[in-house]
């Protein structure tokens, strides 16, 4: 089969056997270190493309992403095509980049997401990106997509349902003191799609600038709730109003995050 008739090349790096072999490590970390709990997986359609939209927490290591990926692969099997969108600097990181690619992570772009959905994949996207993932830790219970509506346009264009994935606990695996957006701008990092340069308190380095060096996450309890699918055209008509759809999706997620926050009695311990 010619390349243009086969899967797009960027989807080729995903390796189900590799994912299968690394599930035990993910299970040990998720179960013993983070006491992770993922609820509502049966809300995800059993087959076909779906856009999983999550709130992003935990800095670049994003432990709730790997806990959800473990849950997804265990529940649906490693055979089901599942891709996650990530910042290109994360994918380009030595070591971790190759690991993530084998797990199906691809560079975040509309074109890449559309190719994955066209291939029938479940695609996990974090519209809040580096802005949300580096929000100060005391804003842990806030969904903050910074007004980005690209995920809505993608869902409308491809006609796939949105399934919200709401997590809490990730922002307690490090303590972000400030996003450092002014510093990022002053250093010109925004030219590399880096709008933030966070100042955080992490193990074992103490206070750090940026989020580039490996660290040990605090053993925060992670809880994720998967919500029922949202068909934007069914809900808002053939030509959905983006502001209305944005408010609906983020509002639904915020309500769920508030409920998850109410369940927590202590930071980190859960």
């Amino acid at each position: 089969m010619a390349r243009d008739e086969a899967l797009p090349e960027l989807l080729d790096d995903r390796d189900p056997d590799y994912i299968r072999d690394t599930l035990p490590l993910a299970w040990l970390l998720a179960t013993l270190w983070h006491r992770a709990e993922v609820r509502g997986l049966d809300n995800i359609p059993d087959d076909g493309p779906v856009l999983l939209v999550g709130n992003h927490s935990g800095g670049n290591t994003s432990p709730d992403s790997f806990a959800f990926s473990l849950a997804f692969a265990s529940y649906f099997g490693v055979e089901r095509r599942f891709h996650q969108l990530a910042h290109k600097l994360v994918i380009a990181s030595p070591g971790i980049g190759a690991f993530l690619k084998k797990h199906g992570t691809i560079e975040a772009s509309h074109a890449n997401a559309e190719k994955a959905l066209d291939a029938g994949a479940a695609v996990l996207v974090y519209p809040g990106g580096d802005w949300e993932v580096h929000r100060p830790s005391w804003q842990s219970g806030r969904v903050d997509f910074a007004g980005r509506t690209g995920f809505l346009k993608l869902a409308i264009r491809t006609g796939v349902p949105i399934v919200p994935v709401v997590s809490i606990g990730g922002q307690e695996t490090l303590f972000v003191l400030t996003r450092g957006e002014a510093l990022s701008k002053a250093l010109g990092l925004h030219r590399f799609r880096l709008k933030v340069l966070p100042v955080s308190l992490v193990i074992p380095w103490g206070v750090t600038l940026g989020d580039f060096i490996p660290r040990l996450p605090f053993p925060a309890k992670l809880t994720t709730q998967v919500l029922p699918p949202i068909d934007l055209r069914e809900k808002f008509g053939d030509d959905p109003d983006l502001d209305e759809a944005y408010d609906y999706v983020t509002g639904t997620m915020q309500t769920t995050l508030d409920a998850l926050a109410d369940e927590r009695r202590f930071p980190v311990l859960g």
Binding site: R20, L23, P24, L25, W27, L28, L32
Partner: peptide, 15 residues
């Protein structure tokens, strides 16, 4: 039997 060699064995024991 969990996959993943030694780590899989550890998971089996814990689970």
């Amino acid at each position: 039997q969990a996959p993943g060699g030694i780590l899989g064995w550890v998971v089996d024991q814990i689970a």
